[in-house]
């Protein structure tokens, strides 16, 4: 779904939101870019189930499909990087990327909706980092391992109300574990 340029911009963006370190994978290592690309190419990206007016407002991202929002948002991010540093967002060094996103978050950048795009990117990144690996993100359940979430399909009757590190006592289960079995 994404062009090579958009792909590079998105990877730089999501790795700024969840960087690699000793406690867990970066967003792109966890498959978040592939996840978002897959989502944008599917029903979600097309805005299925949502109300998109025939004449969308040019300044109201709620009127756009996620696909349109990402396309405009990534282009706007590159444009902002060019204005401040003369290169695309992905070409900025990590410190400058962080600085630009922080400025957007502080609403220190004059732009009608770029702060909403940051909100959207944070939401999508969390979805890709923490949703079931069947959707292409959360590679090897790395996001779940990192925080201690055992996944789906558990019978917790013997653990309710017990002060125990339950995530360390039960295996991580994903949808694929059950689909492969049946």
């Amino acid at each position: 779904m994404l062009t090579a340029k958009e792909h590079a911009c998105l990877a730089a963006l999501v790795d700024c939101l969840i960087p690699a370190d000793a406690i867990g994978p970066s967003a792109s290592d966890a498959g978040v870019v592939a996840f978002i690309d897959g989502q944008l190419g599917g029903d979600y990206g097309a805005g299925k189930g949502t109300y998109l007016p025939a004449e969308p407002d040019a300044d109201i991202p709620g009127d756009w499909s996620p696909r349109t929002f990402y396309s405009k948002g990534l282009a706007a991010l590159d444009e902002l990087a060019r204005q401040s540093a003369g290169c695309d967002f992905a070409q900025l060094d990590p410190g400058d990327r962080h600085e630009l996103l922080s400025a957007i978050e502080r609403k220190a950048i004059a732009h009608p909706w770029i702060a909403h795009f940051l909100d959207q990117a944070i939401q999508s990144t969390m979805e890709g980092y923490f949703s079931d690996p069947i959707h292409g993100g959360n590679r090897n359940a790395g996001g779940w391992k990192m925080v201690g979430f055992p996944g789906c399909g558990h019978d917790y009757r013997s653990f309710v109300g017990k002060n125990l590190p339950v995530a360390q006592l039960v295996p991580i289960q994903t949808i694929a574990d059950f689909r492969d079995r049946t």
């Binding site: 979600y44 299925k48 189930g49 109300y51 998109l52 923490f130 079931d132 059950f178």
Partner: peptide
């Protein structure tokens, strides 16, 4: 392995009103 195990489908509201 059905929708009942799918956290993302839950978040997306697979059983909710189609606003389109």
């Amino acid at each position: 392995g059905a929708i009942e195990q799918d956290d993302l489908q839950g978040l997306r509201g697979a059983m909710m009103q189609d606003l389109s």
